[in-house]
Design a protein around this nucleic acid. Structure first.
Lengths: 226, 226
DNA sequence: ATGCTGTAGACTGTCGACAATCGACAAAAA
DNA sequence: TTTTTGTCGATTGTCGACAGTCTACAGCAT
């Protein structure tokens, strides 16, 4: 068979998928703000599709918990109260702690620690240049790596759902996050605890780490009126 | 305004919701078995609705992870491999352990212990009569109560997703579960640890409890061919 | 004024029909 | 025979139109 190197996979995703991705991204990036309503007719004509695939996309966003639909009243982007964010970060903490325990129990501590250290190195480089966005991106990779190495698909899928909201929260509050280099160092202490296979300490450190990140976000968060 | 006691709320749920509930129940009870395919046209005429609400219901089941859809190839009930079940039970264990920690940290140990003890009493009564189904139902209430008292809505919604699959697994394997009375006693030791505010022990006990329940299910589980 | 009733407009919920895609098998080409 | 191409039937993906439901406001009666 002829192999044409200039030809790539053309986009075969269904309209539902494409609309879903667009909407999700819009919510995560804060382009669609909490409380804003999604009118099917408007969005459909905006995307140039009919209402059917658009409705299906909205249903999925509903199941993911990013929007809320009241029958015959329309769909709105879910509002984020302080309590929601606290819950978000404590659930996140639970998952990462569990993952670390799994990693150590499965004897993968040194392997994972190595991978994490490499990530930290990149983070440090970005931190030195004060590239906040880059640091955030690498930070996500760091935590994704921890979860992935628990080798538990169910955990991973729950995690994906949770991190979507974390990203949303962070973009609604493009925060300074304090001293970037200090943050990187915090990550390294976690890596060290994992490498030492010290479950209790590693879990403690990750709890503190996530907890203080959450506190920073929650600090001065404006409650939405109900 | 006149109050008519013989009049109740009539069912106003949308077709999508009703179809969704029916399908979900069918999957949970094992009426729809893993691997079975859901043909939109057939189901729609079976329910007496058009394909639109049916498709929306299927999309939600997809997001919940109960079914799998291949584009243009149809939807099938997700197969359950041994690994899936192990993951299910370990995630469940993580959640309950976290919930217990939260309950104790929030100083609600005695309140919750009291409620749990009452549930155990009912369980014991059902166990003495060897009413397996009843014991299972109360067992669910017991664990739901633990989660609910963590007072974390995000945790609760993740929990609901997880327990749906637990129910599915259990109905696919209408298990004996060993000695019913012994099980009830296990629950009581957990309650005692909570009441004593002994986080480490309570978490350890719940891990063992869930773990052994999972082992019983996994034991002799037939792997589905892929 | 106050409270009920009924319309209007906007939006969501549902439907039936049509288009697109796939696997399998038959037909044609090598 | 082996490989490629065309066609068919089944099923999903998408569309435009219509029906149902809600809120707000106007009109009417008290």
């Amino acid at each position: 068979m002829a192999k044409l190197k200039s030809i790539g996979q053309i986009n075969t995703k269904s309209l539902r998928e494409r609309v879903l991705d667009s909407l999700r991204t819009a919510i995560i990036t804060g382009e669609l703000k909490p409380g804003e309503t999604l009118v099917e007719t408007d969005l459909a004509s905006q995307f140039g599709v009919s209402r059917a695939p658009l409705r299906e996309a909205i249903n999925i966003l509903n199941a993911e918990g990013l929007v809320e639909t009241l029958p015959y009243h329309g769909t709105t982007v879910k509002k984020l109260a302080r309590k929601d964010i606290e819950e978000l970060y404590s659930v996140r903490s639970m998952m990462e702690g569990f993952a670390i325990q799994r990693i150590i129990d499965n004897g993968r501590a040194s392997t994972v620690a190595e991978a994490l250290r490499a990530i930290c190195q990149k983070m440090l480089a970005a931190a030195e240049k004060d590239r906040l966005i880059e640091v955030n991106r690498i930070d996500r990779v760091f935590h994704d790596t921890i979860i992935a190495n628990a080798q538990n698909q169910l955990l991973t899928s729950l995690w994906n759902n949770v991190t979507i909201r974390v990203q949303q929260v962070m973009s609604l509050r493009n925060q300074s996050k304090g001293d970037l280099q200090q943050i990187t160092l915090n990550h390294l202490t976690i890596v060290a605890a994992i490498e030492a296979e010290n479950v209790v300490e590693a879990v403690q450190l990750i709890n503190d780490h996530i907890g203080s990140a959450g506190d920073l976000i929650v600090e001065g968060w404006e409650e939405p009126e109900p």
